[in-house]
């Protein structure tokens, strides 16, 4: 592990590769890339110890543009490939980048298993609710009834909520951010980086060609105060220009948006105080259900950040423990470990 103090100071340029960026002009991916390239110098990590792994899709081109190690792999498999890398090389910072199709459709299985194992990889899920690279089919996060090239009569599929899914897999770190707010993105990426274990950050990302404005109702500057529910650890959950809205939890466990004024006296005791460290993921899950579509007030920030054993570290600890217990492997001894006889 490189000592943080030894890492030379870098700038955004140092983290940018020499490759021409080829996303459509106006794509939300540009702002995510910039956020990452600007954040990296602040994290005190070395470029050579940083790896971006991706699958297939627009988002998956991301590694080509980072001046780090990187692999643009195959559709859906990046969490599996990253798991192998992270277990083999716990000294590295391994990031995974993919879109909603890559991560939730073809690669859904790898995603949930990476999350349940709690392997030290940081997964950035660029959710634009559409298939971009194949030119506009509905995705597993598209709203039901969506008319696309492959669903001229409207899609029949019920969508995934990526945050709910990740919490269902008991991910130890789950956050949400969006491509219109660089500072918030960087804060979430930084938290993911600092977390020990697998982290999932959903990034609402605008596809201006095939699904333009999908998140506009909540992410446009003028709409944010009323429509984004910022989750701050230890704080009562309130939003709106004057904090006039809040979130309470009903006795049946369902989280609900209320007008604070309607709560009468003792407001602070009724509002839900956000606790990202709660081991039971139920409360975080309830929060993830507040919005069924990004046209309703939607929570942003860290839903869950808990500590549990990290897979790569545990795997390597077993190797170390076995070596301490039986000594380093002795091939001669292994080959004679079953009953033998002399001729």
């Amino acid at each position: 592990m490189t000592d943080v103090t030894e890492v030379p100071l870098t700038t955004k340029a140092d983290w940018s590769s020499d490759q021409e960026v080829r996303w459509c002009p106006g794509c939300g991916d540009y702002s995510i890339l910039t956020a990452m390239q600007m954040l990296m110098p602040e994290l005190g990590v070395a470029r050579e110890n940083t790896v971006f792994i991706s699958g297939i899709g627009c988002a998956a081109r991301f590694p080509y543009y980072m001046n780090t190690y990187g692999m643009h792999s195959i559709h859906g498999r990046s969490p599996a490939i990253a798991t192998g890398l992270a277990v083999a090389r716990p000294d590295l910072d391994v990031w995974v980048v993919g879109g909603d199709g890559d991560m939730l459709s073809i690669g859904g299985n790898h995603l949930i298993h990476a999350l349940r194992r709690n392997v030290n990889i940081k997964i950035l899920l660029f959710n634009n609710q559409i298939y971009g690279l194949t030119k506009g089919q509905y995705s597993p996060t598209s709203e039901q009834g969506k008319v696309t090239k492959s669903t001229p009569f409207g899609s029949l599929d019920h969508p995934f909520n990526p945050v709910s899914l990740a919490l269902g897999a008991e991910a130890s770190f789950v956050a949400r951010t969006h491509d219109m707010d660089r500072k918030h993105m960087q804060a979430m990426f930084r938290r993911a980086h600092e977390h020990q274990g697998s982290a999932l950050v959903e990034v609402f990302q605008n596809c201006n060609v095939f699904n333009d404005g999908a998140f506009g109702a909540i992410t446009k500057k003028d709409n944010r105060e009323a429509m984004l529910i910022n989750l701050d650890h230890g704080q009562p959950i309130r939003f709106g220009a004057d904090g006039e809205k809040g979130v309470i939890c009903r006795p049946n466990g369902v989280a609900e948006i209320v007008t604070v004024a309607d709560l009468g006296a003792d407001v602070e005791n009724q509002l839900l105080v956000h606790d990202e460290t709660q081991m039971d993921p139920s409360r975080a899950f309830a929060l993830s259900r507040l919005a069924s579509r990004p046209t309703e007030p939607t929570p942003m920030g860290v839903f869950r950040a808990v500590e549990r054993p990290e897979y790569a570290g545990e795997t390597n600890a077993q190797v170390a423990a076995a070596t301490a217990a039986s000594g380093p492997g002795d091939l001669e001894k292994l080959l004679h470990s079953q009953p033998t006889w002399e001729v």
Partner: peptide, 22 residues
């Protein structure tokens, strides 16, 4: 494991070869 061998029982065949490649 004392030979430094790491084994991962993956979630499926594709993940198995994927993590080996990683």
């Amino acid at each position: 494991k004392n030979f430094g061998v790491r084994t991962v029982q993956a979630e499926d065949e594709i993940a198995a070869v994927g993590c080996a490649l990683g």
